Simulated scan of single mutants.
Amino acid sequence: MGTEPGRRELALACLDYLDLEPADLVRVAADAGFDSVTLRAAGSVEECRGDLGRDAARVRRVRRALADTGLRVLDVEVLRLTPTLTHDEVARVVDLAAELGARHVLVVNSELDAEEATDRLGRIVERCAGTGVRPCLEPMPFSRCPTVAAAVSTAVPAGAAVLIDALHLQRSGGTPDDVASALAEHGADLVPYAQVCDAPARAPDPARPREEAVGQRLLPGQGQLPLAELLSVLPRDLPLAVEAPTRELARRSPADRAAAAIRAVRDVLSLD
């Protein structure tokens, strides 16, 4: 399945679907009208059905679902930069991403200082060479890489990209102008895709930012994040992944959640 010329690629992010078999996520996304998905392959805090892990049978089922639907994989997540992250774990995730045709592998700096993170990320970039997979560092305010500026200073020397998430940008005190400045300095290739959702202007509980990120977001257009401004500074053909686990939709079926997600992002893009 190819994206129509002039239309953004829309991906369904896996964060809201970790209770679902990955092959089923692919089919749900296809039925809803998405072009691609993101998939979990490592880094889960606790065991979940949505993690491909080391399950070869799950991987085979995902490959069949991708072939049957024509969907693509936007990214495979997540490599967490910690002192215990091994070369073998990096190799496994990168090889799996390449096997599934993923274009990116998502990286989060959980524990390393900036110099160590750049070095470790550079080695991940080296491992990705020739695979068609590009590492993308995601700044998150509750990580060791909290801002766009911190991500740029780590990723650029390592040869990696930066992933922009609308919620994390806002909660870190960043603005779309910060993204625009980074793109102007380092080029459009710095940010190969973005994650979108919505949220209130102020966090519901600033002391618990991770809880909001993993389960209290809003669908695009339902909150007060400056999505229009963010979209205006991003390239018009930049792929967007809808990552919006919400309390409102938590009890609805995966199909209903996916349908609501694509309606919401299409509505926002129609105003873009």
Rank of each mutant, 00 (worst) to 15 (best):
Q170C: 06
L79F: 04
D31H: 12
L81V: 05
L231E: 02
L121K: 10
T82E: 14
T118K: 04
R127L: 08
G223M: 01
A98P: 08
R247H: 02
A199R: 01
L15D: 09
P192G: 03
L12G: 04
R49V: 14
D198P: 05
T84E: 15
R134T: 12
E99R: 15
V125I: 11
V148W: 03
S153Q: 14
I124E: 04
P83H: 09
L52V: 09
A203P: 00
D68V: 11
T38W: 02
P22D: 08
D198I: 06
D113T: 12
E116I: 00
V93I: 10
A161Q: 13
P146L: 14
V148N: 12
V78H: 07
L79T: 07
G2R: 12
L137T: 05
D237T: 08
D75P: 02
S153R: 15
A228V: 03
R60P: 00
R7K: 14
Q195K: 06
A264S: 13
D19P: 01
L167P: 04
A102C: 13
A180F: 01
A166S: 15
E115H: 11
V133W: 10
L163D: 14
H87F: 06
G70C: 04
R72Y: 06
E138R: 00
G53A: 08
D75H: 10
R49L: 13
A117S: 08
V268N: 00
A184C: 01
L71W: 09
R123N: 07
E4D: 12
H104Y: 14
V133D: 11
T175G: 10
D68E: 15
D189T: 10
P239A: 07
E248P: 07
L12Q: 04
V45G: 01
T84C: 00
E9L: 13
A13T: 01
I164F: 05
R202G: 00
R208V: 05
